[in-house]
Nucleic acid binder design. Structure first.
Lengths: 233, 233
DNA sequence: TGATGTTTTATGTGCATACATATTATTTTT
DNA sequence: AAAAATAATATGTATGCACATAAAACATCA
């Protein structure tokens, strides 16, 4: 049949994807093992392994030791979002970025914040509010809590010219984090800041970043109506 | 100094991440080349390569042939979203899923749709509207256009019991797609369907999937207020 | 029958080696 | 001095081999 040989892992990957796509290997099907495929493709098992691993990482194959490799039944689409600094996000679109600090003070956070950050309830944290604008129009409102015990340098930073969004990325390392996206209605306060009607649908990002066991910061970003976040599948 | 050897790529990866995190290798820094690291870590260059490749894929390193490997200056956070079928999304939370087809007919789509799908302006497509519910309460409204030329079988499918969301994943292969997230205000029609106040902030997903050069389907998913989409960083 | 141990098997990984390839750095030529 | 050819170098990848590991399949025993 196919006398052609596949000399590199990319071409093996392409062929594997083609077979999945052409339904030669149907969802749920167990595909031949690496050794057999290597024989068929005329390459080393290592090469097949590399290709199958890549396809599996992309979500189209499920692999388990001994059980073998099968075509994913629920090809859970994996979208990789690139979350950049707001300033560069705006500048990359060719718009002019401006920034305005609104509040910056130490305060005891609401319970929702202290429990999400796993800090003791009564301990004050650094609270920063700021507005990011694109071409003069409000773009996003940043509402952030920072733990000064975790990032002592933040207490000495005014955040008057550099946003916490940007400053933290540069000065506060983190090991992991959680992010969530939602739609929220603009409160009266939000509406004033973002210069939009009260009740507007705002795209909202909530993020908590951790450095090991301690929360570094929790931020809520409110984007003006019309904002959308894109990704490829 | 460190007499310890790193025998596997995961431990090398951990050590590399530690150094980046501890600022031993600062953002922008050129790190030692693979051969030197292999020597230092007491393992093969292949192993170092595997580890560095993984870290680079995660976004913390930038690698270029001959130029070497350097710590990413803009650690653009990459969040990987798992977009599942709505039914399983609901069932995985232990809720009861129900589905109701609202409309299904051939129609000439608005220009916004036909141009996004790159179909000729006047050609009718299959239009499906359906409601997904969790524990009896409306959860998401699905507004979908399907190209019957690309998925002929869809014309023979009633979508009365199986949602297009689920049916397409099983029957219509795709090569790639775009997805975007936004917040929109509920129109009166949306409000009735989702049983929420008019003007409510709805989390919205817009997705177009392609099979090679042809658009398979374009879908708009409106989620009830309160819905959020999570990911880890 | 059910629990427990053993074998088998497919994937996962490490290593030495060789060569490929993209870039940068250097040298030569015009 | 600019352009072109050439060398040097770090990453990228293919291969054969060996062994690790998880988990299914099977056998054994109470």
């Amino acid at each position: 049949m196919n006398t052609h040989t596949f000399r590199n892992w990319q071409s093996v990957q392409t062929e594997v994807l083609r077979r999945i796509h052409a339904r030669e290997w149907k969802p749920g099907d167990l595909i031949p093992n690496e050794a057999d495929l290597a024989l068929e493709f005329g390459c080393a098992r290592t090469t097949v392994n590399r290709a199958l691993r890549a396809v599996a990482e992309a979500g189209a194959l499920d692999r388990r030791r001994k059980a073998g490799t099968r075509v994913a039944t629920q090809p859970v689409a994996k979208a990789t979002l690139n979350i950049a600094v707001i300033r560069t996000e705006i500048e990359d679109r060719g718009q002019t970025y401006s920034y305005r600090l609104i509040t910056r003070h130490d305060a005891v956070p609401p319970l929702a914040i202290s429990s999400a950050m796993e800090t003791s309830a009564g301990r004050p944290l650094l609270h920063v509010g700021a507005l990011h604008s694109a071409d003069g129009t409000p773009y996003a409102f940043e509402d952030r809590w920072i733990d000064p015990n975790v990032v002592p340098a933040a207490s000495r930073e005014g955040f008057e010219t550099v946003s916490a969004n940007e400053w933290l990325l540069k000065h506060a390392p983190y090991t992991h984090g959680e992010i969530s996206f939602a739609a929220t209605s603009a409160t009266q306060e939000d509406a004033v800041l973002l210069q939009c009607p009260e009740g507007s649908a705002l795209f909202t990002i909530n993020r908590v970043t951790w450095d090991g066991g301690a929360a570094v910061t929790k931020v809520r970003l409110l984007f003006r109506l019309g904002h959308s976040m894109r990704a490829v599948l």
